[in-house]
Every structure is written in C-alpha cells, then in structure tokens.
Simulated assay, not measured.
Amino acid sequence: MMDPARLDPARFDPDAFLRDHWQRRPLVLRNPWTGWSNPLPADELAGLACEAEVESRLVTGAAGAWRMESGPLPEHRFAELTGAPWTLLVQAVDQHVPEVAALIAAFRFIPDWRIDDVMVSYATAGGGVGPHFDQYDVFLIQGAGRRRWQLGGRCDDGTPLLPHPDLRLLADFGVEEEWLLEPGDILYIPPGIAHDGVALDDECMTYSIGFRAPSRAELIEGWTDHLLDALGDDAREDDRYADPGLPRQDNPGEITPDALARLQSMATAALLDAEGFARWFGQHSTRPKYPDIDWRPERELAADDIRAAIAAGAPLVRNPAARMSFIRQGGTDLLLFVNGTCLPCTGSAATLAERLCAAGGEPVRPGTVDDAALSLLLALVNDGAAGFDAD
C-alpha cells in the first residue's frame, strides 16, 4: 500500500491554508497526496462496528426518512440491509487501525491538542446523514467511490432543526456551493457551515478528521470543577471571609465596595492561577477519548527491559491512541501530558519528550539514556502510550 499520509507540497501549502481558509471558508483539494490508496477495507470497518468498545452508528433511509441505530451492531445486520440506502459511521478508527492513524500526520500543521479523531463512514449509493452543521473544523477525505457535497450558509445554536430523536438535521438547507469528490480529494469545512454529503456509488468511503474546540462554558465548568475537587480535599474550616478593622457603616443594609472586593478576590484568586490552569488543561485535553480501553502491556517492563530494547536498536513508537502534549516551564524543563497524566520532565527526559511529541507516528531512536530519560520511557511504555518496535 502506498503511504497516504503525505501531502504533496507542490499541491498544498499549509501556511497559505492557515492564512486564507482555516476557520474562514471551505476549500477543496484535488487529490493532493503523493500517492493515494484507500487505507481501510470496508469489511474491516464493518467488523469494528460489531465490537462493543467501538462507537458506531448506522443510518438507513433517504431524505426525509432517516433512521439511526447505535452500535455495537450484530454481524447479521449488514446482510439485512437491502434496497434503501444506508451509511455506517465508526468513530475513532485511528485508535484501532494504524493505517488510518497515519492520515493524521498530514494535518499536524495544526496543534495535536486540537485533533479529535478520525471517523470513517461507508455508504451505499444515495446514502448520507442529511444536511447538518458541526461546531468544529473537519477535513473530509474521500477514500473510495464518489460523494457529492453541498454546502450552505453559516449556522449557530439558534438555527432551526427538524424534529428527530437522534439526528441534528437542518430544517432549511439552502445550497450555495457544490462539489463532487473522488478518491484522494479533500474538502475542508470550517465550524458552523451547513453541509450535506450523498454517496454516488456503492462502497463509498469517507474519512473525517475532526478538531476539538472547547466552548467557554466547557472550560469554565471543567476548570471550576477541578478547583472545587481540590478544595474538597484541602478545604480549611478557617478559610472564610474576614474583615478585621471593620468600620461602622452609615447604613447596615449596604454591601460595601470594600466587602465586595474582598469577596470577589476570594472567589477569583484560584480561578486566575495561570500555572494551575495550564496544568489542568494539559491533563484535561489529553484524557483518552475512550478511557475504558486498556493499552498497557501484558507484562510490566523493568528498567533492564528498556535498556535491552535500546541496545538492540529497537525504535520507540507512539501508540496512535495516545494523546500527548507538553507545556514549557521555562528554560529546558517541561510538563509532558500523556492520556490525562502529568509527567514533569527535565534535562534529557524533556529533550526526549519533545522529540516524541514532534515525531507523531514516526519512530524515535532514544539512543543513550540517563536515569531521567529511562524513568520517562518506563512510564510511557508501561502506560501503553508508547512501545518498542521489535521488528
């Protein structure tokens, strides 16, 4: 299989894209890959939809009569799908299929913490999920077959929707642009743009790379919940409002500006802790999408196992399912966040952490490691976030 994860620089300029299109306007790229081959057979996608730990949906019917079923799906369900068009959608396929995870490498000109997952859809002719809009950026890669995409105007939370128990379908969809995508073509859609994709062939496959965009409400809720949890553990009974030297008021019914300032300071001091927020967000943004999946090795490795792998020249490879980011701490120190865990790194460990984050899916050869780097490698490998390639 040809490597589908490389975009031809002669046909795609990431800097121009970020300047002119990212979160501004749609863009169609006509097969900009150095070599395109559909990375996932349809029967393997169907097999994933039958597994309990994989999130999947089946949408049957055509315009005006869509029905949705949530997975896992029984194997015999696909044999029953005759006549009416249908679409299978499987979330986070990149966490289960390395060839699909490799697609992400082409889009790493956008920070890793923004990347959500790769959803893969399979549809028969006429299949689709109806006109809708998303609150996030998405690259739609046509893997096999052809799909017609129609785009409309910009939507928001006040845009009218059709009554439907499972699908968020637009009540009014006006077509402003239309494209036909063939294998290897890419359509970028910014947040809030109405769109509708319909398969023109049987065995139509589309890969959707979505990007997370936390809302203000989600950030406030997550940060304050974290602070409240911390207060619950460390709360002091004497950590209360105090006003020594209280002057006598002309009117005891007034809440004075001085009292309000003291109260607001009590409530906001922790909220304004920039270092604490950074650590919380690093952990929050790297939490596994599906935390119940256990990627740890069957046998916990020891330091000697790590040294033996390095001596044998085995490269270190990140688990495609691992979420990994870092925040600099000044100088050469950094905080590495892996699957919701914070790992402070200094010296050689910080250098290795940066190399691993930069490499993405590419193998890294650690070389000679000291105790700090060895400790980091042990934590990553035993967590299942990385492993040595024995081949």
Results as ranks from 00 to 15, higher is better:
Arg236Val: 08
Arg212Ser: 08
Gly197Arg: 05
Asp229Asn: 11
Leu219Tyr: 07
Cys204Phe: 00
Ala230Asp: 15
Asp225Gln: 14
Ile209His: 04
Ala217Pro: 07
Ala217Arg: 14
Leu231Gln: 14
Pro214Ala: 07
Ser215Thr: 15
Leu200Ile: 10
Asp201Phe: 07
Asp229Gln: 13
Gly222Ala: 06
Ala213Phe: 06
Gly232Asp: 07
Ser215Phe: 06
His226Trp: 11
Leu227Glu: 00
Leu227Lys: 05
Val198Phe: 08
Pro214Gln: 01
Ile220Asn: 00
Asp233Asn: 12
Ala199Tyr: 06
Thr224Glu: 01
Arg236Ala: 15
Asp202Glu: 03
Arg212Asp: 07
Cys204His: 05
Trp223Asp: 03
Ala213Ser: 12
Ser215Cys: 02
Val198Ser: 10
Asp202Thr: 06
Gly232Arg: 14
Gly210Val: 05
Asp229Ser: 11
Leu228Trp: 11
Val198Ile: 11
Leu228Ser: 08
Tyr207Lys: 03
Ala230His: 15
Glu221Phe: 08
Pro214Thr: 06
Tyr207Val: 00
Gly232Met: 09
Ile220Tyr: 00
Ala199Arg: 02
Asp233Gly: 13
Gly197Glu: 08
Thr224Arg: 03
Ser215Asp: 03
Ile220His: 00
Trp223Ile: 01
Ile220Leu: 05
Ala217His: 12
Leu227Thr: 01
Asp201Lys: 02
Asp233Tyr: 12
Ile209Cys: 03
Met205Tyr: 01
Leu231Gly: 13
Asp196Met: 05
Asp234Pro: 09
Glu203Val: 10
Ile220Cys: 00
Leu228Thr: 04
Cys204Asn: 08
Leu228Met: 14
Met205Cys: 03
Ser215Lys: 07
Ala235Met: 14
Ala217Glu: 14
Ile209Trp: 04
Gly232Ser: 04
Ala230Lys: 14
Tyr207Ala: 04
Asp229Trp: 08
Phe211Gly: 07
Val198Thr: 14
Arg216Leu: 12
Ser215Glu: 06
Gly197Lys: 01
Arg216Asn: 06
Asp201Ser: 07
Ala217Gly: 06
Glu218Ser: 13
Val198Ala: 10
Gly222Thr: 01
Cys204Glu: 11
Arg216Glu: 09
Glu218Asn: 04
Leu231Trp: 14
Thr224Asp: 03
Ile209Gln: 02
Leu227Arg: 02
Ile209Gly: 02
Pro214Ile: 09
Asp202Trp: 07
Asp201Val: 08
Ser208Pro: 02
Ser215Met: 08
Leu219His: 10
Ile220Arg: 00
Phe211Asp: 03
Glu221Ile: 10
Asp196Ala: 09
Gly222Pro: 10
Leu227His: 04
Ala217Met: 13
Trp223Gln: 05
Leu219Gly: 01
Leu231Ile: 13
Met205Asp: 02
Leu231Val: 12
Asp233Trp: 12
Ala235Ser: 12
Asp225Tyr: 05
Leu228Lys: 02
Gly232Ala: 12
Ala213Cys: 11
Leu200Cys: 14
Thr224Phe: 05
Asp196Gln: 12
Ala199Pro: 05
Met205Lys: 01
